[in-house]
Every structure is written in C-alpha cells, then in structure tokens.
C-alpha cells in the first residue's frame, strides 16, 4: 500500500499529508470515545460496588495482563522504530521491525486467547461458562471485561491487518514520501496501545 498520489482538493503533497494525519488523529479521538463508554460503565460499577469490584479484579490474572502490556508496549516501540527507519531510507530494517511488531501483536492475541481459555475453565465467563458467577457485580465486571478486551482485541486485529499491509505484498515502504501512510498506520497501532494502558489498571489492578 504505497502512498496515494496527489488527489483533487489538494494542490500540494505536504498539505495532503497533513490532512491525512489530522484525519487519522480525529478518528483516533472518536475511538477513544468509543471505549470511553466502557470506561464510564466500569467507573459506575466501581463507584456503586466498590468492594465487589475489587474482589472481582483480584481474581484476574494480572501477570498475564502485565505480560500483555509489555508485549504491546514493545510492539508499539518497534513500530515507532520502523517509522524512523523508513524515514532514514533503511527499508530493510523497517521491514524487520514491522515483522517483529506484528509477531508481538499476534503474541498478544495468543496470550489473550489463553487467558480467555483459562477463564472459561474457571467458570467466570458470563452466560457461557458461569459456574463461579452468581449474578451481581462480579458477573457485571466480567461482562465489562469481555466487552472491553474483546473490542480491544478486534482493534488489535484491525491494526495487525494494517501493519501487515505495510510489508506485504509490496515489501516495506522504501521512499521517504511513503512514510506518511506508515505513519498513519503507526498512529492507529499506538492507539490500540493507549487503550490497553488504561484497560490494564481498570480491570486487573483494582485492589
């Protein structure tokens, strides 16, 4: 996916790049608000059932979440590095860094899947495997957990698809001018990271 050529409303390429970037940032703003509704719901649950909320959070596998945080932050750093490499004209390095970033993103999903499997066996999946849940705040906590992490995992998948398109089938971006598209994809990947940064203490670290 190379950069689009100059298209109609624009007469200068730099202006068009600024516009693309601004558009992406605004889109990310709307994504923040999308997750915002879930954060709001979590806040309400925590304010209304503080004790149960903390008890539910203590049952979460905080180390799996912690590892996943590290994985995602590292992946983000690699994507930032890939962007720098592309700008410096080092397409090969950029391709490798993006490949590692994608591998880490897949690892994130694998760990997340493992965690879901563990929760399934523990019986804390509302409506499907709820042996340990007896309604009430604990169940609501798990509902929010699955909504938020599930929606986040969808975003991870979307981000991985975009990152994949940066190195396949055409290979990593070579020219400096192609860095804009990669830059926008990187922005999206960092947003996925940002949301997780807040999901982690919200769901795993309330004690």
């Amino acid at each position: 996916m190379s950069e689009r050529a100059l298209h109609d409303p624009f007469t200068r390429l730099d202006r068009q790049r600024e516009a693309d970037r601004l558009g992406m940032l605004l889109f990310l703003g709307s994504e923040v608000m999308l997750f915002g509704g879930l954060f709001a719901a979590a806040m309400v649950l925590r304010l209304q059932h503080s004790h149960d909320y903390i008890a539910a959070s203590k049952e979460m596998h905080y180390w799996l979440g912690g590892i996943n945080t590290a994985v995602l932050l590292t992946s983000s750093a690699l994507v930032a590095g890939a962007l720098e490499a592309t700008r410096a004209g080092r397409a090969r390095l950029s391709g490798w860094l993006l490949g590692f970033a994608i591998a880490l993103g897949l690892a994130f999903l694998a760990i997340k899947g493992t965690e879901y499997a563990i929760e399934w066996r523990e019986g804390v999946v509302p409506r499907f495997s709820d042996a340990k849940l007896h309604g009430g705040p604990h169940e609501l906590f798990m509902v929010l957990y699955f909504c938020a992490t599930g929606l986040h995992a969808l975003h991870v998948t979307g981000g991985l698809t975009l990152l994949g398109m940066m190195i396949w089938p055409k290979g990593a971006a070579r020219a400096e001018r192609e860095a804009t598209t990669l830059g926008n994809v990187a922005l999206y990947w960092h947003l996925v990271d940002l949301i997780w940064i807040f999901l982690y203490p919200t769901l795993y670290l309330a004690r």
């Binding site: 940032l25 608000m33 915002g36 954060f39």
Partner: peptide, 13 residues
C-alpha cells in the same frame, strides 16, 4: 486533535 478524545472523555467521566 490527539488530545480531544481524552478531554471529552474527561467531561463524561
């Protein structure tokens, strides 16, 4: 633009 989402989320919360 990058901060707008966070600012507005702060309104909500």
């Amino acid at each position: 633009a990058g901060m707008a989402g966070f600012i507005w989320l702060a309104f909500l919360l």
